[in-house]
Write a protein that binds this DNA or RNA. Structure first.
Length: 320
DNA sequence: TAAGCGTGGGC
DNA sequence: TGCCCAAGCTT
């Protein structure tokens, strides 16, 4: 059985396999992973042709740091209510925040609204196909730009989300987890593994993400179901546990973030402006409560109406 | 570069 | 039960 070569000294010094290693890995990994995807791809609404580029973009914003199962119902509501960027841009940003519901990170709703506005005003209402134009939109970073260009327009891009990074860390580099931040070595690996053909590359991006989401998971990976188990460098090395700095955790309890969430929940569920007293009720400590509210206002998620009265924003936030 | 930013499900 | 994690972006 052919296998991916042992990690070389050069690979260790650069934090990843060299181009030749990656090229060999590509020959071994492409077919099994693409075939596996053919059989195991989930039927997700944003993968259907009728989703279109706007549906893909909406899904990508919602899926940032948020599980598929929680996105599904909100995605259906959003795309039914706002089938085009222009439709979303025509409504107040606060409506986007309200419809975001409990997906979390509500600044994403604001940024998606701002992206819809930019698309309407400077791209004729059509989601741009160009990677650089996508990257320039609010809330669109390296991953989302590559994902929309790849999934909506079939272009050839290295799409590196947490799933893909983990799959490559294990299968190619031979470690359990990638580094906290994306490294240059990871980008080289991802590019070296990208199939030459545009259509195949786009499918490869979706396939590697799906493999990471369904089989090569962060905890308790289902290696017995893995199409490239025989070639996996991490597995061949004996599945060594993560060795290095701790993976970045997330604190939440007692933080401003928690208070912001409680405050915004009150405003989302209200039909109109909310008096200060209703907001004061959700958190006892006044200094932190005031700081959290100020932060929401500064972010454009909350708009002061009058003295001691607040609402979800009717107007876009002023640039800071 | 690292910290801040929500929420809820699974083990 | 707590802790870990989930298709990141911005400053």
């Amino acid at each position: 059985m052919p296998r991916i070569p042992e990690t070389t000294d050069a690979a260790r010094s650069t934090g990843g396999p060299n181009a030749a290693d990656a090229a060999r890995a590509a020959g071994l990994l492409h077919e099994p992973i693409l075939d596996w995807f053919e059989e195991n791809a989930r039927d997700l609404p944003w993968r259907r042709p009728e989703a279109g580029p706007w549906g893909v973009m909406v899904s990508e914003f919602m899926l940032q740091q948020t599980p598929v199962s929680r996105v599904l119902p909100v995605y259906e509501q959003w795309t039914a209510r706002w089938p085009t960027p222009a439709a979303l841009a025509a409504d107040p940003p606060g409506e986007a925040v309200r419809a975001w519901g409990r997906l979390g990170y509500p600044r994403r709703a604001l940024r998606l609204h701002a992206a819809a506005t930019a698309i309407t005003e400077t791209h004729g209402g059509e989601v741009p196909e160009d990677h650089a134009a996508l990257l320039a939109l609010p809330g669109v970073g390296e991953y989302t730009a590559a994902a929309v260009a790849s999934f909506a327009f079939g272009q050839r891009h290295a799409v590196m989300d947490t799933n893909v990074r983990r799959v490559f860390a294990r299968a190619v580099t031979g470690v359990e987890y990638p580094a906290n931040a994306t490294t240059a070595a990871e980008r080289r690996t991802a590019h070296a593994l990208l199939p030459d053909d545009e259509t195949t590359a786009a499918r490869w991006a979706a396939a590697t993400m799906e493999l990471g989401a369904l089989v090569c998971t962060a905890r308790s990976p289902q290696c017995a179901r893995c199409p490239v188990l025989a070639h996996c460098s991490w597995r061949l090395a004996g599945s060594p546990p993560h060795d290095g700095p701790p993976r970045r955790g997330q604190t939440y309890a007692g933080t401003d973030r928690q208070v912001r969430g409680k405050l915004l929940a009150v405003l989302r569920e209200a039909t109109g402006p909310v008096p200060q007293a209703a907001l004061d009720a959700v958190w006892d400590e006044p200094v932190q409560r005031a700081r959290a509210l100020d932060g929401l206002v500064a972010d454009g998620l909350v708009e002061p109406v009058a003295d001691g009265v607040y609402r979800l924003p009717l107007t876009p936030a002023a640039p800071r």
